[in-house]
Simulated scan of single mutants.
Amino acid sequence: MCNTCGCSSAKEITENPGMTRRAAVGAVSAGAGALALTACGSSMDSDATAASIDPGAPAEPTDMAAVADVPVGGVIKATAQGTSVMITQPTEGTFHAFSSVCTHQGCQVNAQKEKTINCPCHASVFSTEDGAPQGGPAETALPEFPLEIKGDRIWVG
Rank of each mutant, 00 (worst) to 15 (best):
K113G: 06
T4V: 12
G131T: 04
H122V: 06
V75D: 00
G6E: 05
G151A: 11
P90D: 00
S42E: 14
G157N: 03
P143S: 10
G74N: 10
P61Y: 06
V67P: 11
K150L: 00
E129T: 12
M1D: 06
G151Y: 13
L37Q: 11
P55A: 05
L142W: 01
I149R: 15
I154H: 00
E92D: 14
K115I: 00
A141K: 12
K77H: 07
A80Y: 01
D45L: 15
A57Q: 08
E114I: 00
E92C: 06
T103A: 10
Q89Y: 12
M1Y: 02
A24K: 14
D152F: 09
V72P: 11
K77N: 02
V28T: 00
F95K: 04
T79C: 10
V28K: 03
A10N: 03
T20I: 03
T20H: 04
T94I: 14
A59N: 01
I13L: 14
I117H: 08
P146K: 08
T128Y: 14
I76E: 09
I13W: 01
L35H: 10
C5W: 00
E148L: 02
A65D: 08
K115S: 06
V28D: 02
A34Y: 10
L35G: 10
T88H: 14
V25P: 04
A34T: 10
T91F: 11
T91M: 11
V25Y: 05
P143A: 11
A36H: 10
E60V: 06
A23W: 03
C5M: 03
F145E: 04
T103E: 09
T88E: 02
H96T: 01
M19Y: 03
A32T: 09
P61H: 06
N110K: 08
Q108E: 12
N110C: 07
P143C: 06
A138S: 10
T91D: 12
V72K: 15
Q105W: 13
F126K: 05
A34Q: 08
D47Y: 11
K77R: 14
P143R: 09
A78H: 01
G73P: 11
L147F: 03
Q134K: 15
A51W: 03
A30Y: 02
E60Y: 01
M64Q: 03
T116C: 04
K150D: 00
T20L: 01
T140G: 05
T14I: 12
Q112T: 05
G106S: 11
V109P: 12
N110Q: 15
H96P: 00
R153P: 05
I53A: 09
P133F: 07
T79F: 02
S46D: 15
A68I: 10
